[in-house]
């Protein structure tokens, strides 16, 4: 059992608060909840799939999706959180493309950038390794040193 104030307790509290916020949103603004639920679906899916510590990819995808969903959510808010407006917005392909595209781009960046960096670094380290090994071979031959 975790002691009071420990990270496990804080995490549980955060989950509880998040649940409370979601419940409140469903209770007082169900149209907004629907819109955000659909537009932030990539972030939710990423959250479910991302098992890495810190969930860095989920965070990136969520921020990107939020950036894409901010404008429709604002229009829904101005329209009085009506279900019809929410449905209309969700039926607009541009709205979905913007929100989900932003999430997809963020996810792609999280996958492509590390691969590119690793490739570059690998080439660099291979060259460096060859150089070191050549020097070691030369020294061993010059001084008759065992490997």
């Amino acid at each position: 059992m975790a002691a009071p104030g420990t990270p496990a307790r804080s995490k549980a509290s955060a989950m509880w608060l998040q649940g409370l916020a979601c419940g409140a949103l469903l209770a007082f603004a169900p149209a907004m909840a629907l819109l955000l639920g659909v537009l932030l679906a990539p972030a939710i899916a990423c959250f479910a799939a991302d098992m890495e510590q810190g969930r860095g990819a989920t965070r990136s995808v969520a921020i990107a999706c939020v950036a894409g969903a901010l404008s429709p959510a604002w229009h829904l808010w101005l329209a009085g959180n009506a279900f019809g407006v929410a449905i209309t917005l969700l039926c607009d392909p541009l709205t979905l493309v913007l929100a989900w595209g932003a999430g997809a781009c963020a996810w792609a960046l999280c996958q492509v950038v590390p691969a590119l960096l690793q490739s570059l670094w690998s080439v660099r380290e291979t060259l460096r390794t060859h150089k070191i090994e050549a020097e070691m071979k030369r020294i061993r031959e010059e001084w008759h040193l065992e490997e």
Partner: peptide
């Protein structure tokens, strides 16, 4: 190096998202 690359990728994506959000 793998960890750094992943972190850099995620930070880059986060930065881009934040820029989009700001926009």
């Amino acid at each position: 190096r793998t960890r750094i690359a992943q972190t850099l990728g995620q930070e880059l994506a986060t930065g881009a998202g934040l820029l989009g959000l700001l926009g």
